[in-house]
């Protein structure tokens, strides 16, 4: 049972690490600030979720588990706010987007 939990925890940690590196590659590889913000979202959301889940399975007591969940909740609450502030500032500053604007309101 303990071994099964360890293996599950390793799978979470390794996949989280993989997504973190993919996010890093995306931040380096994408052409402009808007596309890079999507790559940054990868590192903020799934990489954090998987790494925290992996650590959660290894936490020695409930207090550490609660703290881990609070770290995850905090990163998930703040990530969209800073992401939105960033692209909004870039857009207001006139950084060009490589596409046509569609003004139609759609559902």
């Amino acid at each position: 049972m303990a071994l099964a939990l360890d293996i599950l925890s390793w799978i979470f940690l390794l996949s989280g690490a993989t997504f973190a590196i993919i996010a890093g590659i995306g931040v380096l590889r994408f052409p402009d600030v808007y596309t890079r913000s999507h790559a940054a979202g990868l590192g903020d959301t799934l990489a954090t979720l998987l790494v925290i889940l992996g650590l959660l399975l290894q936490s020695p007591d409930w207090m550490v588990a609660v703290k881990l969940i609070m770290v995850l909740a905090f990163v998930w609450f703040t990530s969209p706010i800073s992401g939105h502030a960033l692209v909004k500032a870039a857009y207001a500053h006139g950084v060009k987007i490589d596409c046509e604007e569609e003004d139609a309101v759609s559902h």
């Binding site: 993919i22 994408f30 990868l42 490589d98 596409c99 604007e101 139609a104 309101v105």
Partner: peptide, 19 residues
């Protein structure tokens, strides 16, 4: 998005849309 990052052709198609 991870697929778009790692594929060699980088199949991104940027759009701006008002919802």
């Amino acid at each position: 998005v991870a697929k778009a990052i790692v594929s060699p052709g980088m199949p991104i198609h940027q759009r701006l849309v008002r919802v």
